[in-house]
Design a binder for these strands. Structure first.
Lengths: 124, 124
DNA sequence: AACATATTTAACCATATGGTTAAATATGTT
DNA sequence: AACATATTTAACCATATGGTTAAATATGTT
């Protein structure tokens, strides 16, 4: 009987694998909105927080989650800590998706040929 | 001051938006392993559970999460409830990623031209 | 009907997550 | 030095998540 080793972290405070961190980070709408803002360009925590009806510490926590996933980085500019979107984790998601791309493209193809067959019948 | 409405669910038991459900479902390595197995074809809960060192009810719960995200569907075949991978949510992830694809492709391009410039210098 | 097989549900538990307010820290300005 | 601005940390809280074991349910076989 084969057992998959699903997570190789050996210590008890299990550090989730990177892909899990990335997907967890993306699983929150506030964080996705923050990323969408950052796609427009680097900006401060205050400006990132402004649109949301939550406290600044809550936003800081979201940024920590995004940082743990490698999705953003922060620098220093006077008192401000501007945040920047980082591309690499998104590429990892793309790589993950690629495993399945064939699968769902195939299914689309099946749909295509089904629609095509309907079409052919119509024109008979 | 603009406030984003990040989640439009009005009742207190907030039903997270679909994209959040999908990313949450993908954020667990056991569930990603289950999806990987299902990419090979439909199979029973027992067979899905076999490789993991956890109880069957734990696997059932993971399947529930995958189902809530629309990533799998279950049918009935005698006592068995075979699971099948569903493509649509993965397409939604792809759509989400597409928003950023330009961003990270651009960054790769920048790396490319940097490497190219190094190359040119080398050949001077 | 009784038993077997496949799966789910219920009740429970420990830890993670996403929020809060109050206080602390880092940097810049007067 | 004192104050202002930007952000983070600490302590706390309610709910979600991912696991457990025991019992229930659905279907098939004898």
């Amino acid at each position: 009987m084969v057992k998959y080793v699903v997570n190789n972290a050996s210590n008890l405070t299990m550090t989730a694998d990177q892909l899990s961190n990335i997907f967890s980070a993306l699983a929150d709408p506030t964080r996705r909105a923050i990323l969408a803002r950052l796609a427009l360009g680097e900006t401060s925590v205050n400006e990132l927080a402004a649109p949301f009806e939550m406290s600044l510490p809550a936003v800081t926590k979201h940024l920590k989650v995004l940082q743990r996933a490698g999705l953003i980085s922060q620098s220093r500019q006077a008192q401000s800590r501007p945040c920047k979107l980082e591309a690499k984790p998104l590429q990892e998601v793309a790589t993950f998706l690629a495993q399945y791309q064939q699968f769902w493209e195939q299914r689309l193809d099946q749909l295509d040929s089904y629609l095509l067959s309907l079409n052919l019948k119509e024109n008979e």
